[in-house]
């Protein structure tokens, strides 16, 4: 044990304050410079560009009818998609964990596909079946249903993958105890299972919502981009960039960021309430 104690002594004295040696100081310096140049300064540039015109410029951009309608459409579609994901994601996770049937392993791969596919390919994938030349005669190009479908595709794994591990850990004994005490299956679901899953469902939902409001690639080919009708916020940002109006682009970008943060906070509160009620 003598080496153990001496080793403990080394780390003990070393961790009391900064442990940076000359070498790791240089490494940290290089890493911070690169990280600032790549991420921090560019993101700061977006915020500064959005706000340097003052409140009136910020407000003028957002009250432009087309921009306002793009933001409204994006938020509404993202909310709808999140609701569907909360229900379907939980059911899918449930089936993957509790059900046994032939071909279940294949479903696992199918669920990961939307994350693995490039977003532009995701759009093309949906167009091949639900676009022009559709073998089933459905055409969602230039419609809000098309946007909804694309968002549903790219957000599919979030709720499934956050709920699944919690459901695996969930003790079946508690459910059996509830059942033996006379609880119906519905009561068990409502009082035992859903409260334990609530934080995971909320976490998955906020990820799905954040992804849905910022989604771009999968919508480029499907949405059709008609101002006031099928133009979403990310495509509006692109249009502002391409028409040489970076301040307006930055304004919409900052607003999207605020909406995403607000959604995360709200869902966190909801999940805490639900977990406490259980």
């Amino acid at each position: 044990m003598s080496t153990g104690t001496s080793a403990g002594a080394i780390t003990g004295t070393a961790t009391s304050r900064s442990t940076l040696t000359a070498g790791s100081r240089i490494g940290l310096g290089i890493a911070l410079v690169w990280f600032s140049l790549l991420v921090l300064i560019p993101l700061a540039a977006v915020v500064v560009t959005a706000t340097e015109g003052g409140w009136s410029t910020f407000w003028d951009t957002l009250s432009d009818p087309d921009t306002a309608s793009a933001i409204r459409l994006t938020v509404v579609e993202a909310l709808l998609v999140t609701v569907v994901n909360v229900v379907m994601g939980t059911v899918i996770a449930w089936v993957l964990v509790r059900d046994r049937f032939w071909g279940k392993r294949a479903l696992e791969v199918v669920i990961d596909l939307p994350f693995a596919l490039p977003t532009i390919v995701a759009g093309l994938v949906l167009l091949s079946l639900y676009g022009p030349d559709s073998p089933v005669g459905v055409n969602v190009v230039n419609t809000r249903q098309g946007i909804f479908l694309a968002l549903l595709f790219v957000t599919l794994p979030f709720v499934v993958r956050t709920v699944q591990p919690v459901l695996i850990e969930l003790d079946a004994d508690v459910e059996e105890a509830a059942a033996s005490l006379g609880a119906t299956r519905l009561t068990t679901l409502r009082r035992i299972i859903l409260p334990s899953l609530a934080p995971a469902i909320a976490a998955g939902a906020s990820l799905a919502f954040a992804r849905a409001i910022s989604e771009f690639g999968s919508l480029v080919l499907i949405a059709g981009n008609q101002p006031g009708r099928t133009e979403v916020a990310s495509l509006k940002i692109l249009k502002y960039v391409e028409t040489g109006n970076p301040a307006a682009a930055a304004t919409v970008a900052v607003l999207l960021l605020l909406v995403a943060v607000a959604a995360i906070v709200v869902l966190d509160l909801i999940s805490r309430r639900a977990a406490e009620r259980g």
């Binding site: 993101l43 910022s214 771009f216 970008a253 960021l257």
Partner: peptide
Amino acid sequence: VSPVVVGLALVL
């Protein structure tokens, strides 16, 4: 961060 915003940030 949305990919479009990443592009915008680097352009700015």
